[in-house]
Amino acid sequence: MLPAILKRAGLFSAIWIMLTGAAPDALAFGAAAVAAAVWLSLRLLPPVGTVRLLRMLALVPGFLWGSLSGGLDVARRAFRPRPGLRPGWVTFPTRLGGGARAALGGELSLMPGTLAAGCSDGRLIVHVLDTGAGFDQAIAQEERRIASLSHRA
């Protein structure tokens, strides 16, 4: 419990400093606001395991790259005379639980060619722009990456 509180307090303090530009007369306000935010966050999202913050940082470049190529991919299609779309649906079984699954869905939605529409019966529902493209491995890889972030106690 204590590590979770400390991590969240650190994260929210960083956000407060980003907001106020570390103005010294905002620190008292900030302490109260961070305490309230930690309390609210513990109530909304009780810590169930540890989230590896450092490993999360390590995933940032890959995520940015995916997001960039995702944007490039739709931009190319949007500017071409014929977008070359073969849209369709695929469903994937996923072992990820809770927030990790929603995070995977959100991430897939920013990656090239895939858009998640939540889960049903333990299967992730994914809309793909081109059913002919090989996206199976990309989705599986994202799932492994997200799974490596949390560690259930």
């Binding site: 969240r8 407060w16 961070v34 309230a36 935010a37 930690v38 609210l40 966050s41 869905g105």
Partner: peptide, 25 residues
């Protein structure tokens, strides 16, 4: 409980709380 909407509802409110207090300050 572990869907997209609930996930968003768990993440955003603490940040919104900080922004709200920041605006008052």
């Amino acid at each position: 409980p572990d869907g997209v909407l609930a996930g968003f509802g768990r993440l955003l409110p603490p940040v919104a709380l900080l922004v709200g207090v920041y605006l008052v300050w």
